[in-house]
Simulated scan of single mutants.
Amino acid sequence: MKRFMLVLTGLVAVALLSGVAMADKGKDSKYSTEEIMKKAMKGGLITKVAKGQASKADQELVIEMLDSLVKNPPHKGSEESWKEKTTALLDAAKQTVEGKEGAAAKLGKAVNCKACHNVHK
Rank of each mutant, 00 (worst) to 15 (best):
A23V: 12
L107S: 00
A54W: 08
P73F: 08
L8F: 12
M5P: 06
V7A: 14
L90W: 14
A93E: 05
K121D: 06
D67L: 02
P74G: 05
H75D: 08
A93S: 10
A92V: 07
V7E: 04
K94N: 08
A13S: 10
M41L: 10
K38D: 12
Q95N: 14
L66H: 04
F4T: 15
L66C: 03
S29R: 04
R3H: 14
G26H: 01
K106P: 04
Q59E: 12
H75P: 05
A93R: 02
K56R: 11
I36R: 05
E64Y: 08
V20F: 15
A110Y: 03
S81G: 06
R3S: 03
K109A: 15
A115T: 08
E84T: 09
S29L: 04
C116G: 07
L66K: 00
G99D: 01
V7Q: 10
A110I: 01
K2C: 04
N112Q: 05
K94E: 15
G102D: 09
D28F: 09
E101C: 06
C113N: 11
D24Q: 14
T87P: 01
A40C: 07
L17I: 14
Q59A: 02
E98L: 15
G52C: 09
C113L: 07
A40R: 02
Q53S: 08
T96Q: 02
G102V: 10
T47F: 07
K76G: 06
A50P: 09
K83M: 15
Q59L: 07
L11A: 12
A21V: 14
M37L: 11
A21C: 12
E98G: 00
C113R: 12
V14K: 13
C116S: 06
L61Y: 05
E79V: 11
S32G: 12
K106A: 15
H75M: 13
L45P: 08
A54P: 06
T96W: 11
S68N: 08
G44R: 02
L45T: 00
V14Y: 09
N112E: 00
A92E: 11
A57F: 12
E101Q: 15
L66I: 06
L69M: 11
A15E: 04
L89I: 00
A40P: 12
N112D: 11
M22N: 13
L8R: 13
P74V: 08
E101N: 11
V14S: 04
A103V: 11
L8N: 09
M5Q: 13
K106N: 13
A92M: 07
L107K: 02
G77I: 04
G10K: 15
V97H: 08
I46T: 05
K27E: 13
K51Y: 15
N118S: 10
M41D: 10
K42F: 03
H75V: 15
A15S: 13
W82T: 05
S55L: 11
V119G: 00
E64W: 12
G108C: 05
A88Q: 02
N112W: 00
T9I: 15
Q59S: 04
L89A: 05
S81H: 07
S78W: 03
I36P: 10
C116R: 01
E79N: 10
D58C: 05
G44F: 00
L8W: 11
K114M: 05
A110T: 02
